[in-house]
């Protein structure tokens, strides 16, 4: 059901929201105009990019490298700015 079609009968008492973390359904990735790219030759897998991500959308993949979940990444570039080995660059999103 899309949010716009909720009727008053669909509202729980007190308009309480009982599904934790349900806002994850809202993808903020389309806010982005820049995208982070990791250079694995420079990455030391320290995880500073993960820690400094305001979205909490940087994660460690099976190989131990970090990447951003692009469905949420807003492209702020803090990860690139704070990466002390310079492993991350921000590139323009193409249309």
């Amino acid at each position: 059901m899309s949010n716009g079609s909720l009727g008053w009968r669909d509202i729980k008492p007190g308009a309480v929201v009982t599904e934790p973390g349900s806002a994850a359904a809202y993808k903020t990735g389309d806010w982005r105009s820049l995208r982070p790219i990791w250079d694995h030759t420079r990455c030391v897998k320290c995880g500073m990019c993960e820690l400094f991500c305001p979205e909490g959308c940087v994660f460690q993949n099976d190989e131990g490298y970090f990447e951003a979940d692009l469905s949420y990444c807003k492209g702020c570039g803090i990860c690139a700015r704070e990466c002390w080995t310079g492993a991350i660059t921000m590139v323009e999103e193409e249309e």
Binding site: G21, A23, A24, A25, Y26, K27, T28, W31, K45, C46, G47, M48, E50, L51, F52, C53, P54, E55, G56, C57, Q60, D69, Y72, K74, G75, C76, G77, I78
Partner: peptide, 26 residues
């Protein structure tokens, strides 16, 4: 130091509407 000490738990999930680069969100 970094990966070991930072708790994995997230009380706040992605999909929030803070501005891009928000210090408060972080």
């Amino acid at each position: 130091y970094v990966p070991k000490l930072a708790p994995k738990y997230e009380g706040l999930v992605p999909g929030h509407r803070f501005c891009i680069g928000c210090g408060e969100a972080l």
